[in-house]
Simulated assay, not measured.
Amino acid sequence: MTSPVGGVSFPSAITGLSGITGAAATPDAVAQTTAAGDNGFASVLVSSLEELQAKQATSDGLAVQASTGDLRDVHDYMIAANEAKLATDMVVTIKNKAVEAFNEILRMPV
């Protein structure tokens, strides 16, 4: 399984942002990030993509271990694979909703 975001390189302005990761993004945490001067949405987006890439890399590594017989517990691979799948589904859904919102904004009369 290859990482769909493996070839993505982030601009240096975005890479340096620290933010909130994944499902831990609460309204209070988002408000604190925005109040601290970070680009709230950009940092959440970048950290989510980085977390997705890490989950997929973990799943890929465990898949290789399973195929070579080095994996001691198959449950570790199954959990990592399901986490990677759910994270991918979440990122795709968020992307689709963002595109839908952007298109809705474009259709608004001026």
Rank of each mutant, 00 (worst) to 15 (best):
A24M: 06
F10C: 08
A24Y: 09
E51I: 00
T34S: 15
D60T: 13
G16I: 03
G19F: 04
S9K: 12
T15H: 07
A25T: 11
A35G: 10
G7P: 01
Q32I: 06
A54F: 04
S3A: 10
D73T: 07
D76Q: 12
S59K: 02
G6L: 08
A36R: 14
V30C: 10
D73I: 06
A84V: 01
V92R: 13
P27D: 09
G37P: 02
F41C: 14
D89Y: 05
S67E: 15
D73C: 04
T34F: 14
S47A: 11
T26M: 02
A35R: 11
V5Y: 02
G37V: 03
M108H: 01
G61L: 02
N82A: 15
P4A: 05
K55P: 03
D38N: 12
A42H: 03
V110K: 08
E104I: 09
L45K: 00
G69I: 05
T21M: 00
I94G: 11
A66Y: 11
A84Y: 01
K55H: 07
V64A: 15
T26K: 06
P4Q: 06
D38W: 00
Q53S: 15
G61K: 03
I94F: 13
A63D: 12
S18Q: 14
A57I: 07
F10S: 08
T68S: 12
D38H: 10
A80C: 02
V74H: 01
I94T: 14
A98S: 14
K97T: 09
G19R: 06
G6E: 15
V8A: 05
D76R: 10
A87F: 02
A25W: 03
M90C: 06
T58Q: 08
P27K: 07
E50C: 08
G69S: 04
L45F: 11
M1Q: 06
G69T: 06
G6A: 15
A31T: 10
S12M: 15
A24E: 13
A25E: 10
G40I: 02
A42S: 12
I20Q: 03
G19L: 05
